[in-house]
């Protein structure tokens, strides 16, 4: 595959956030698990999310042992693997979808290692702009972190409520695109209320980074999305979208539109 797009793709996500900022808008970042509810509908879902107001989309490569995920994403991952979803198929889907909005590949480390040394270039060529790895914290594996950091994709790093300020700066220095702030302790999944500490954590993180800050984990509906949009640059919605996608493409699109409206009104 040609890799002519490589040099520009690493800036796609930051450019997107800059455009949103100029327009006074916050980003809506839905997550779906590739291959859920089935392989055919993954491309339809991507397009439906894009048309319903997504600014960036996180597409999850399913893993057999998703230790950072709650029941909804676990179940979707297991189902997707049973249907034969893998890295190669994921890239085919993305290449065919020809998305306008930037895509972030969301994965655990092991499937990315297994995909081989060319995996990052292949992902960029297929149309991905960023990569987020749940189990590769800053400083854990300098060699692999350098492989990703020097590669063609934005390297989205995670910050947790437990992360001290000094480490936030370190994470920011080793990431690009945006910083993904985990809103609360725990695994992914829907919650009725947002953590009371969240505004303070966002404030600490803003002091540590110039990158856009997106908040995820536990954002389940428009009301919470609006609350997050008042303090962050973007809102990640995972389990709620995955659950809606399990019902139908239309249900996922409808939820995305509602989230979009709530965020824009916030």
């Amino acid at each position: 595959m040609a890799s002519g797009s490589v040099t520009i793709s690493s800036d796609t996500i930051e450019r997107r956030f800059a455009e949103l900022k100029a327009a006074g808008k916050r980003a809506l970042v839905p997550y779906i698990t590739a291959g859920h509810p089935d392989i055919e509908r993954t491309a339809e879902l991507l397009l439906a999310l894009q048309e319903s107001g997504a600014d960036v989309i996180e597409l999850g490569l399913p893993f057999s042992d998703p230790m950072a995920d709650g029941p909804v994403i676990q179940a979707s991952s297991q189902r997707a693997l049973e249907l034969g979803m893998n890295f190669t198929r994921l890239l085919e889907i993305v290449a065919r979808a020809k998305m306008r909005v930037p895509l972030v590949l969301f994965s655990y480390l092991n499937p990315i290692i297994a995909a081989g040394q060319n995996a990052l270039v292949q992902a960029a060529d297929a149309g991905f702009s960023g990569l987020l790895i749940t189990d590769l914290p800053v400083g854990s594996d300098p060699e692999r972190e350098a492989w990703i950091g020097e590669g063609p994709l934005s390297f989205i790093r995670l910050v947790a409520p437990t992360t001290p300020a000094a480490r936030m700066r370190e994470i920011s220095a080793h990431g690009s695109g945006f910083v993904y702030l985990i809103s609360r302790l725990g695994v992914t999944g829907m919650q009725d209320t947002m953590s009371a500490d969240l505004p303070a954590t966002v404030k600490r993180l803003r002091e540590a980074t110039a990158l856009p800050v997106c908040v995820g984990f536990g954002v389940s509906g428009p009301e919470q999305a609006a609350a997050v949009a008042r303090i962050a640059d973007g809102v990640v919605v995972g389990s709620a979208i995955v659950r809606a996608a399990g019902e139908s493409v239309e249900a996922a699109a409808k939820l995305t539109s509602a989230l979009r409206a709530a965020i824009d009104a916030a």
Partner: peptide
């Protein structure tokens, strides 16, 4: 900060965990 030597046995070992657990 831990030393690489304490973290690893040759290339093996490490701390491949969610960020939330790093301070713990």
């Amino acid at each position: 900060m831990t030393t690489a030597q304490q973290d690893r046995f040759g290339a093996f070992g490490g701390r491949y965990v969610p960020e939330t657990l790093i301070p713990a």
